[in-house]
Simulated scan of single mutants.
Amino acid sequence: MPAAAAHNHDAYRPTSASSAGAPHLRPVTFHAPESVIYAQGDDARLLYRIQYGAVRVSRLLADGRRQIVAFYLTGETFGFEIGAVHGFYAEAMVNTGLTAVERCSAGTLPHELVEIALRAMIRAQEHLLVVGRQSALEKIAVFLLDLAKRQECEAVIDLPMSRADIGDYLGLTIETVSRTISKLRAAGIIRLHSARSLEIVRPERLRMMSV
């Protein structure tokens, strides 16, 4: 179970908005690997933009299992909630710098953030489609292609998440994730540079598996 979140938001002083309804930007804050950014039940008045690093968003199920619902990378924004409190945990996976953006006092999103909120909704729908795929190969192929697209890289991609994280995101065991990645490597489709970095050698083959 994630550790208790550090409630240090009040230590940040929001800058004055340039116009009515504009988001209140706060200084960049540092979060070490595995540190909790917010927990289930925490106040959801802030949104977060990743300046560097990576974040996972998850929920603890009734049986104690963890379900990861999203990974967020540099340049992406997370923390959207329908209600006034968070229904998920957000944790840094690597050294991460965040800029907090305060929502309007009425709880509505400023105009500048509406597009980002819609993008988050689309990503949630895409996650459901990935989890619903039949085979582990399909799931891993779609996952790697999505990471490459979001990192704007056709070849070498970073994997800030662990094999266990990938499994909890795709609905696979860590053994299945490792075995599937090994199959892709043996087939010459990917090349592992390290546990957290790989190269897509044959993207066309990976795309065929994802269809």
Results as ranks from 00 to 15, higher is better:
residue 27 P to Y: 05
residue 146 D to Y: 00
residue 199 E to I: 02
residue 154 E to L: 13
residue 91 E to K: 01
residue 97 G to E: 06
residue 144 L to D: 00
residue 6 A to W: 08
residue 159 L to V: 07
residue 6 A to K: 08
residue 125 Q to N: 14
residue 34 E to Q: 04
residue 205 R to T: 08
residue 110 P to Y: 07
residue 54 A to P: 00
residue 109 L to A: 02
residue 80 F to M: 14
residue 86 H to L: 10
residue 121 M to K: 06
residue 206 L to W: 00
residue 193 H to N: 04
residue 39 A to V: 01
residue 54 A to F: 00
residue 194 S to Y: 12
residue 118 L to N: 14
residue 33 P to K: 03
residue 104 C to S: 07
residue 117 A to W: 15
residue 111 H to P: 11
residue 129 L to P: 10
residue 78 F to Q: 06
residue 106 A to Y: 14
residue 207 R to Y: 04
residue 166 I to A: 05
residue 41 G to E: 09
residue 130 V to G: 00
residue 35 S to A: 15
residue 31 H to S: 05
residue 39 A to L: 03
residue 6 A to Q: 10
residue 85 V to A: 10
residue 84 A to R: 12
residue 76 E to W: 02
residue 7 H to P: 09
residue 15 T to I: 08
residue 188 G to P: 13
residue 199 E to T: 11
residue 164 A to T: 14
residue 66 R to D: 08
residue 58 S to Y: 14
residue 25 L to R: 11
residue 17 A to R: 04
residue 110 P to G: 06
residue 149 K to H: 02
residue 19 S to D: 11
residue 135 S to I: 07
residue 130 V to N: 00
residue 210 S to N: 14
residue 157 I to G: 02
residue 189 I to P: 00
residue 12 Y to G: 00
residue 45 R to C: 13
residue 195 A to N: 06
residue 115 E to P: 00
residue 18 S to V: 15
residue 157 I to D: 01
residue 100 A to C: 14
residue 197 S to Y: 12
residue 128 L to R: 15
residue 182 S to M: 14
residue 144 L to N: 00
residue 47 L to F: 01
